[in-house]
Nucleic acid binder design. Structure first.
Lengths: 191, 191
DNA sequence: GCTCAAAGGCTAATAGAACTAGCTTACTCC
DNA sequence: GGAGTAAGCTAGTTCTATTAGCCTTTGAGC
């Protein structure tokens, strides 16, 4: 049910994930869906949880056994890959978890933990790690979104542009770690 | 009409820009809107053109009289500012222009030209400038989107994170320009 | 073997959104 | 003063989400 919705979102687009289309895909009348879901919004939330869980697993798998630059490149590649192959699901991951939705929040935290672990390999921690996490997320998310939305005119060179983006970020992290002062706080925050 | 729709999008959210809400705001019955617009999609396109024009004017104004790092910081600040103050309009700017929509394409090109001009101040041109443009757009767009969507947990430090992101990008551009080989092509492409 | 309850499907009906058709009013321009 | 047009309206259609109420299958427990 949720996987069917996720496939539909990937094929038709996240905003065109409609109960009518899902029912047709499952060979069932629309109201029958309500035996399995609460509402369209509930279904969307379920797809979001599925997607963010998958994304977390993908970047997690990419990071295992690697460190620093190596890990960064692998994680960035896995992130972009997921967005390219699952555009509908990827769009779902953008949705912020409801504050009282523990399952969703936990799933979203996996991606975060992987990124923090990668940054730890550069010697970053505390506020520095938070700033770097935000910057990395922004860069990756922006790139994937613009690419998925056709924001880049020439598809041929996009791979190279992405490599350069990641390499530039890698260099920045190295310099950053070299010059960083010990943080005045090591308390871990939500970035 | 279009400005009313843009205000409504800023207040209620881009995806909640509805003809019923717009008609109510204008003190008019819904069908009367069709004397001024073609369709909801046409209205959205008009709002997108308005937004991308405003955004182009904002970054353009920020860049005038500045160069290199100074210009980068000003443009990045203006970009984020626009996204913060006009979240609905900003979301509209993401929409890619239809290939046969000359007005929309031209308006979107203004932002692009400003960014390319800023990068020229770093000595970047050709493929290097395209890669840098994509990276800068991705970073800015990702940051603004995540910020607007509540993707960052702690609001207090977001300003500092943004400054660091821009400063890091600035440093990367300087290094990049220093080490860049003359490009084998100077043909300007759509990034 | 029968009962019965839960799971999962259905039709019918409601409400809100986009959109169309056809009518009316009022202002402008000759 | 009358034609033309701009801009409003009501009424009605289609599509989507959602609810209510009914029917069938299936598997467990007696």
């Amino acid at each position: 049910m949720v996987t069917g919705a996720a496939e539909l979102a990937d094929e038709a687009g996240w905003e065109r994930l409609t109960l009518a289309a899902l029912a047709a895909r499952l060979g069932v009348r629309l109201p029958s869906l309500y035996k399995h879901i609460d509402s369209l919004d509930g279904l969307r939330r379920d797809v979001a949880v599925l997607a963010v869980t998958e994304l977390g697993a993908a970047v997690s798998a990419a990071a295992v056994g690697r460190a620093a630059s190596d890990a960064l490149r692998a994680v960035a590649g896995a992130y972009r890959d997921y967005g390219q192959h699952h555009p509908g699901r990827y769009a779902a991951t953008v949705r912020a978890p409801a504050t009282d939705d523990a399952e969703h929040t936990a799933a979203a935290g996996t991606v975060l933990r992987v990124v923090l672990a990668v940054l730890a390999g550069y010697g970053l921690a505390g506020d520095d790690a938070i700033d770097a996490t935000r910057a990395l997320r922004a860069a990756l998310h922006g790139f994937v979104t613009l690419e998925a939305g056709g924001g880049f005119g020439m598809p041929a060179d996009v791979d190279r542009s992405f490599t350069r983006l990641v390499d530039g970020f890698d260099a920045s992290l190295h310099r950053w770690a070299d010059t960083a002062q010990p943080s005045h706080t090591t308390r871990v925050r939500t970035p």
